[in-house]
C-alpha cells in the first residue's frame, strides 16, 4: 500500500498541517510532524516583525470557526531558527510567505529556501489584513507576476494558496498556473456579533471562517479548478475525518491540509487520519493513494 504523495517533493502521507495553526514555534511544528503529519506549512511570514491583532482573535461556535490573528509573525530574518528546529523531525517543512510586492514575495521565498524549507506556499489570500493576501489574490496580473518571479528564483516547489473571496476563482487559478500546486481554499471572509455585548467579537471585526461549515465551499472549488485546469491541488477547508479527506481527494485533491480541527481533537488527529486512511484503502481495495484523486470527475 502506498500513501506517498508527489507534490514536487515526496510527502510520506497526504495529511499536511495547514498554515496558521500551531506553526510559529519550531518545537510545535516538530511535534506535529512527529504526530503523523506528512508535512507542515509554517505560519505566514512577511518582511518585518508584525504584532497582529489584539484578542479576541478567534470566535468558536462549532461547526463555525472565525479567526483574525492579523498575520502576526517574527519577520523572515527571525524565522530561520524555527525552521531549523522543525526540520529535526526529518519531514518536509513548507514555508508560507506573504508580502506587499513581487519583490517581497521573492526575497522571503529565497530566504525560506536558504533556511531549508522543502517548498514554499504563497499566501495570496489572507482575508483579514488590508493590502495583503486577498487583495493581491484578486489581481490576476499581479498573481501571475509573483508566481513567475518566485518560480524563477528558487529551486524548491512553489504552491499558491487561493482565496474563495473572489468573483472568479478560475481566473485566479489560471493566473497562478505556473505554481507546482494550488492550495484551495483559504478562509471565507466572515464576522460574528455578540448580541449581549452588542459588539463584533473579533477585535479586527472581520475574520476568516474555517471549520466544518466551509467544507462544501472547498469541495466545490477543488472540483471546479480540477475540471478547468489539470493542476495538482492540495485541498483544505473543514476536514475533520477521513471521509472529509477522501471527499476532497475525489474532488481532485492530491493531498489535504488540516488545521482548525486540531482545537477539537488535538495534534493526534494526524495519527488518527493515517490509521483511518489505511483502513479505508484496505476496505476499498486501493493500493495507491493517487487512485483516489479526481475520481468524482471521471
Amino acid at each position: 500500500m502506498n500513501l506517498e504523495v508527489d507534490l514536487g517533493i515526496k510527502i510520506s502521507n497526504p495529511f499536511i498541517l495547514a498554515s496558521g495553526i500551531l506553526d510559529e514555534n519550531g518545537y510545535t511544528i516538530k511535534k506535529i510532524l512527529e504526530s503523523g503529519a506528512g508535512a507542515a506549512v509554517t505560519k505566514s511570514i512577511g518582511m518585518e516583525e508584525r504584532r497582529g491583532y489584539e484578542p479576541p482573535v478567534v470566535y468558536e461556535n462549532d461547526p463555525v470557526f472565525i479567526n483574525a490573528i492579523g498575520l502576526s509573525n517574527p519577520g523572515i530574518d527571525n524565522f530561520g531558527e524555527e525552521i531549523k528546529i522543525a526540520l529535526a523531525a526529518k519531514k518536509p517543512v513548507i514555508g508560507s510567505v506573504f508580502g506587499k510586492t513581487v519583490e517581497e514575495f521573492s526575497l522571503i521565498a529565497r530566504k525560506m529556501e536558504q533556511y531549508g524549507a522543502s517548498a514554499v506556499e504563497l499566501n495570496l489570500s489572507c482575508p483579514h489584513v488590508n493590502g495583503y493576501g486577498m487583495e493581491i489574490g484578486s489581481d490576476p496580473d499581479l498573481v501571475n507576476e509573483i508566481v513567475s518571479e518566485v518560480k524563477s528564483k528558487i529551486n524548491i516547489p512553489v504552491y499558491s494558496k487561493l482565496s474563495p473571496n473572489t468573483s472568479d476563482i478560475v481566473e485566479e487559478a489560471k493566473a497562478a498556473e505556473k505554481s507546482d500546486a494550488l492550495v484551495l481554499i483559504n478562509t471565507v471572509k466572515a464576522m460574528a456579533i455578540d448580541i449581549k455585548a452588542k459588539k463584533p467579537v473579533l477585535s479586527n471585526i472581520y475574520g476568516g471562517m474555517s471549520g466544518k461549515a466551509i467544507k462544501p465551499v472547498g469541495i466545490r472549488y477543488v472540483y471546479e479548478i480540477k475540471r478547468e485546469l489539470n493542476k495538482k491541488i492540495i485541498g483544505v477547508g473543514g476536514i475533520e475525518n477521513i471521509n472529509d479527506a477522501v471527499e476532497y481527494m475525489m474532488a481532485g485533491a492530491s493531498a489535504v491540509q488540516i488545521g482548525t480541527v486540531v482545537y477539537k481533537y488535538g495534534k493526534n488527529i494526524f495519527n488518527k487520519m493515517n490509521n483511518d486512511l489505511v483502513n479505508y484503502m484496505i476496505d476499498n481495495n486501493i493500493d495507491n493513494i493517487d487512485e483516489l484523486t479526481g475520481v468524482a470527475l471521471k
Binding site: L22, N25, Y27, T28
Partner: peptide
C-alpha cells in the same frame, strides 16, 4: 502570552506543548 486559549495559535507554546490546553 496567550491569544486563542484553545490550543491552535501557538503563542503560548513550550517545546511543542500548548500552555492553554
Amino acid at each position: 502570552p496567550m491569544k486563542c486559549g484553545i490550543g491552535i495559535c501557538d503563542s503560548c507554546s513550550i517545546n511543542g506543548y500548548q500552555v492553554c490546553t
